[in-house]
Simulated scan of single mutants.
Amino acid sequence: MQAAEVVAERGFENTRFTDVAGRTGASISTLQYLFGNREDLVVQALRTRTAHLLAEARTAAGAIADPIERLRWVAGHLAATDGSPDAARAEWMLWVEYWRTALRDDELATESIGTYDGWASLVRDAIRAAVDAGLIAEPADIDAVAQGACALADGLGVQIALRRPGITWERATAMTRAWLAVTLNCPALIES
C-alpha cells in the first residue's frame, strides 16, 4: 500500500526503489530481490492497491442492509473513498497511473478491464438488490447503467486529480448519485 502511495505521488516514471524503500522501510536490495526491476515493483503496487480498494468496497457495501442506502453508498464511493480532498486526489492520482500503465502493458490492461468490471458489478449488485426489494423498477439494461455510473465517476475523478475548481469529492458524489437517481427514477438516491 505504501508503494502505491509513492506511485500516486511521483508517477510511474519517477518512482524509484529508493523512494519505495524510504517509505516502506525495506532495503533496496530486498525490493530488487522481490520484484526484479522497478517497473515490476510499480506494476505490482498498482495491482495490489486497486484490488484492495475493490475488496474494501465490496465488504463495506455488503454490510449495508438497506438497498437504497447501499446504492447511495456505492454511488458516493465511486467518486471518492475518503472525505479529505488530499486523500481523494491521491486516490485518483493512483487510478490515473494505473490506467496510464495499463495502456502500455498488455497484461495489466487485461487485468484493469477485470478490475473495471468488478466496480461495475458492485454497482450492478446494488441496483439488483434495490430491484429485488421492489424499491425501483429494473432498468432495461442494468449493465449499461452500471458502466455509465462508473464512467461518470471516473471522469469526475480525473477532474478531482486535476484539481478542477468546483469539482470536489462531495460534488462528484452528488453528481454520481443524481445521475443514478434520474437514470433509475429513484429520487431517494439524492436525499440525505
Rank of each mutant, 00 (worst) to 15 (best):
A3T: 03
R10P: 05
F12R: 10
E13R: 15
E13M: 12
N14E: 13
T15Q: 05
F17V: 05
D19E: 06
D19M: 06
S27Y: 07
L31M: 09
F35M: 10
D40M: 09
L41D: 01
Q44N: 12
L46H: 02
T48W: 05
T50Y: 07
L54R: 15
E56D: 15
A57D: 10
T59V: 13
A60P: 01
A61N: 06
A63G: 12
P67F: 06
P67L: 07
E69W: 07
A75E: 10
A75F: 10
H77R: 15
L78R: 01
L78N: 03
A80P: 04
S84F: 07
A87F: 02
E91W: 07
E91N: 13
M93P: 00
L94E: 09
W95E: 08
V96A: 12
Y98Q: 09
T101L: 12
D105V: 03
D106E: 15
A109D: 10
T110N: 09
E111K: 08
G114D: 09
T115C: 04
Y116S: 13
S121A: 11
R124W: 04
R124T: 06
I127T: 02
I127V: 14
R128V: 09
D132H: 11
G134H: 04
A137S: 12
I142D: 02
V145P: 03
A151D: 08
D154Q: 14
A161G: 04
R163Q: 15
R164K: 15
I167D: 03
T173D: 08
M175A: 13
T176I: 06
V182N: 08
V182S: 09
T183K: 12
L184S: 00
L184F: 01
N185E: 12
N185Q: 14
N185L: 11
P187R: 05
